[in-house]
């Protein structure tokens, strides 16, 4: 263990650790415009055409698989009928998918909120490649006018904000991510709070709200908006589903169901906010 082999081994280990620490430090300090950000953007753009191709190829397979998994009890039918049924269901799924896409695009075309704010419509093409973050990938990037921190909405409401943007791709940090927080206002009472991301549940927690707040289940929440923050005011966020007062607790436990759900959304609009003159 003390020969030249073990020396080389130790040197490699030390080199890996020092290189990693240097990269982590540079990336943490540099952000999207630092050397780490530039490496990321270049690599993401380089892989974008491959991802596009695979995404297109996987769509029909997903439709077919959807048809197979929803086929129910067809044990008594022969092989040919099964195949035809699956194909028909795959086609039906594709048709339903097309109708849903049109509905989503129609909603985006006539957004009831932020009607005058310029925006770029984009398609969600990827989920997160990792396990510790709630993100989705969009097929548009800085080449189409997108920039980090711009808010992203679906036809239902706020979905999140852009965390990373390369020339052809961008990544949305969803409201459900643990690292996400958005200031919200109760439309009925005007009370303000902070909605912190909770990836474990479909329901989110409303925190930092006045202990005397008069919010109740059913109240709608919209973004507060601020000059410094990434979100414009009055974008629908969600609806309060429960207000509990645990014995001994200082503040009420308020749970919120978000309007926008990335799992059931394909098209989104990136709002170009703050609007530059």
């Amino acid at each position: 263990m003390t020969g030249p082999g073990s020396h080389r081994r130790r040197n490699i280990l030390i080199l890996l650790i020092l290189t990693s620490i240097t990269l982590i430090t540079l990336d943490t300090r540099g952000g999207n415009s630092g050397i780490g950000g530039r490496i990321r953007n270049t690599a993401r753009d380089a892989f974008a055409p491959i991802q596009d191709g695979i995404d297109s190829a996987l769509h029909p397979i997903e439709n077919w698989w959807d048809g197979v998994t929803r086929s129910g009890d067809i044990k008594d039918e022969n092989q040919r009928l099964r195949r035809e049924l699956q194909q028909a269901r795959g086609a039906a799924t594709a048709g339903r998918n097309a109708r849903r896409q049109i509905e989503e695009l129609s909603k985006l075309a006539s957004l009831p909120f932020a009607p005058t704010m310029p925006g770029v419509d984009a398609q969600i093409i990827l989920g997160s490649p990792g396990n510790f973050e709630s993100t989705v990938g969009l097929n548009k990037g800085s080449g189409q006018g997108l920039a980090p921190d711009m808010p992203v909405v679906s036809g239902e409401g706020l979905l999140g904000r852009l965390a990373r943007v390369s020339r052809r791709r961008s990544t949305v940090l969803l409201l459900t991510d643990k690292d996400s927080a958005v200031g919200v206002r109760d439309v009925r009472t005007g009370d303000r709070g902070v909605l912190n991301g909770n990836p474990d549940s479909a329901l989110q927690r409303l925190d930092s709200i006045d202990v005397k707040a008069l919010v109740k289940a059913g109240d709608e929440l919209v973004t507060v908006g601020s000059a410094e923050g990434p979100y414009p005011p009055d974008i629908p966020v969600g609806r309060i589903v429960a207000v509990e007062h645990p014995p001994g607790a200082l503040a009420a436990r308020i749970t919120v169901r978000l309007y926008a759900d990335a799992n059931h959304t394909e098209y989104v609009r990136v709002l170009q906010y703050p609007v530059t003159p």
């Binding site: 890996l16 650790i17 290189t19 990693s20 620490i21 240097t22 990269l23 982590i24 540079l26 990336d27 943490t28 780490g36 490496i39 990321r40 690599a43 993401r44 997160s128 490649p129 990792g130 510790f132 973050e133 993100t135 965390a163 990373r164 990544t171 940090l173 690292d179």
Partner: peptide, 13 residues
Amino acid sequence: DVFLQTPLGLSAL
């Protein structure tokens, strides 16, 4: 790391 939000070098390490 290039495709994640966490700092570059974390998965590498």
